[in-house]
Design a protein around this nucleic acid. Structure first.
Lengths: 352, 352
DNA sequence: ATTAGCTGTTTAAACGTTTAGATTTGTAAG
DNA sequence: CTTACAAATCTAAACGTTTAAACAGCTAAT
């Protein structure tokens, strides 16, 4: 048996299908008594509207394509949750495709041509499905200009950007500045930083924040305290060992992610340096495990949910042809735990 | 300007729209020279098919609704990845909705009526979008009979089930049996177990595996070694402390998840018991952090990707009206790391 | 009583496909 | 050159909606 359609209920209610459509959408006045006949029929026949037909006519699906480089990477789920959140409230649906980039072309887009293929396949399938727009969720923040062509549909990037499109990023520079301020407030001044790979924007931004803090707080600047990591645990380990071997080692380390902190902890342990007693450390990302390590590590939390929410909100405006309002970057927020100690109890400082 | 449709290309190629459709789908023979005229026109006008129209006519969208209780919980992304994987190969697309259950009605479905509302809203929106079927991804394995009504569409559950529908689960009983065998092989016989909440099927299944191992390997059975946890770190901590305080403490602990192992580690540390020297521990889930703890913990990995893959594969058969073949439960697989020690070096035993 | 202006309702076309069934074209046999 | 048949192509309806435009019925103003 065919599913019941607007036609059936028109028949039952003894009105035209147009009228049914009008009561369904409230697009035109209909006499209360007619209205009731229609809603009764709807009820009785257990009518469910067919959005596919509606989409065809309206040329609008209320569906957006979400392209994730890799949903299994820690940032993606929270972002998706944010997207879902806004979608819920504005009747937007999510067509998800997972590029599985790392598993296919390797970190750093090893095979660029292959990447372009996967991505453009995904895009063109979504285009066929007539999505109203796209959100791209990267795993690293990099320039993707020229890699993806979404025809004339709007797209919003997050953890990635292009020179022509809007992208949502959190305020990295400010985040590391915040972390530094916190350390300074705890009495530290000889503060080392372990960066991520320097081809990433966040790494550079965060380094900027570090420099600004060094300047603002008049910290002793020592290039030996600046270490280039690669986001992986081993680099945290190795670089911390180097830092601790310095004639004048730092009293605190700012690590650009929590994973490298695992290495920091291990190195400190092996050098017999206690955390937070003799060395403080702050991570980035607020990964779940940062609460499970000993000591529980203090870290900068990323506004992932908010980024997703803001991405789709922006997309929503683009779809509706609204001017997109000035974007305010979501801020990171310090999660205070046990890996930072007070250096000189007398210098718990002023600024908030 | 309207997007170019089959009509435009028919015009350009000087054929009827039917013919265009035939070359597009290969559903009927068309003379090579006509075929070329059509493909040329397609090329020239940069035609992209409209799946919405196709879906309307065909009454099939090639889209499935994936309902996740919470995508931010560790199991969901890998499962989604598996679903995406199969979808990729069989031209199935994913319409994702995140219920955010924990954030809304709390663990354990605090407010059942509210839950039913959220779920049935999600379902009916997806139904309107004419999905061909559903996959439900739970966060705990529980009976959801009567909570979700997907009309006449097929649904496959994972991490959750109902009395009427198919559900994909991994083999829990076997998993804990495997873990036990491993411990036995390492010379342990006095093995404690810390369970999750006992309202969960996995907890009970895993306990069964434990009992079977105790029997098969003729281990001394001591009810004092069986502890009821609640999946949370604190219970791991508390119960381990109790175990270590026993007159005859266990030499190994099987914890039903990795989170509780964090508590185990802490308790052992505070009791001055070294792991794996004096106490061995195996976790469950192969959470990323299990590799970051010290010692790196040995754990049973869950076949999440495979579960997702198998779920959609099954759904695919249901959608196509195929008899669904005998399901073989995906198996867990031991990830060997550093938290299990050999008890009596002379008894590294036979069975593999 | 006619007209004008509402309000509510219907008619019919359109969205971009697929697909029976009809029709045309081409080919081979008589 | 017919005829028969197969192959290629076309016609037209259908999928379930929305919506512009036409229309009907009523009220109020002239």
């Amino acid at each position: 048996m065919r599913k019941t359609s607007i036609k059936d209920i028109a028949l039952k209610a003894n009105v035209s299908i147009a009228t049914v459509s009008y009561v369904l959408n409230g697009t035109r006045n209909v006499r209360p008594e007619t209205h009731k006949r229609v809603t009764d029929a709807i009820e009785e026949l257990n009518y469910k509207p067919n959005d596919i037909a509606k989409s065809l006519k309206r040329n609008r699906t209320n569906t957006i394509g979400v392209i994730a480089e890799d949903v299994t990477v820690f940032n993606a789920p929270e972002i998706i949750d944010g997207i879902n959140d806004f979608g819920d409230r504005h009747d937007l649906h999510i067509l998800l495709v997972n590029l599985r980039l790392d598993k296919r072309v390797g970190h750093n887009f090893g095979d660029l041509e292959a990447y372009r293929n996967y991505a453009s396949n995904a895009v063109s399938e979504l285009l066929s499905k007539q999505v109203d727009g796209f959100i791209y969720i990267g795993v690293h923040t990099r320039d993707l200009t020229g890699l993806i062509d979404v025809e004339d549909k709007p797209i919003v990037y997050t953890y990635g950007y292009t020179q022509n499109d809007i992208s949502i990023q959190y305020n990295d520079e400010q985040a590391s500045y915040k972390a530094m301020s916190y350390l300074v407030r705890k009495g530290h001044s000889r503060i080392a930083i372990i960066s991520g790979l320097m081809d990433s924007i966040p790494s550079r931004q965060r380094l900027n924040g570090y420099y600004r803090a060094v300047t603002d707080f008049e910290l002793p600047f020592d290039p030996l305290l600046i270490k280039m990591g690669d986001w992986e645990r081993e680099s945290g380990y190795r670089l911390t060992a180097e830092l601790l071997a310095l004639p004048e080692p730092p009293t605190a380390i700012l690590s650009m992610n929590d994973v490298m902190v695992v290495g920091v902890l291990q190195a400190a342990d092996e050098c017999g340096v206690s955390i937070p007693g003799e060395l403080s450390v702050i991570g980035f990302d607020n990964r779940e495990f940062s609460d499970y390590l000993r000591p529980r590590i203090t870290t900068m939390g990323l506004p992932l949910h908010q980024m997703g929410y803001q991405a789709i909100e922006t997309l929503y405006h683009l779809i509706n042809g609204n001017k997109v309002q000035k974007l305010v970057m979501p801020e990171c927020c310090l999660i205070e735990r046990d890996s930072v100690g007070v250096l000189n109890s007398d210098v718990e400082q002023k600024q908030e």
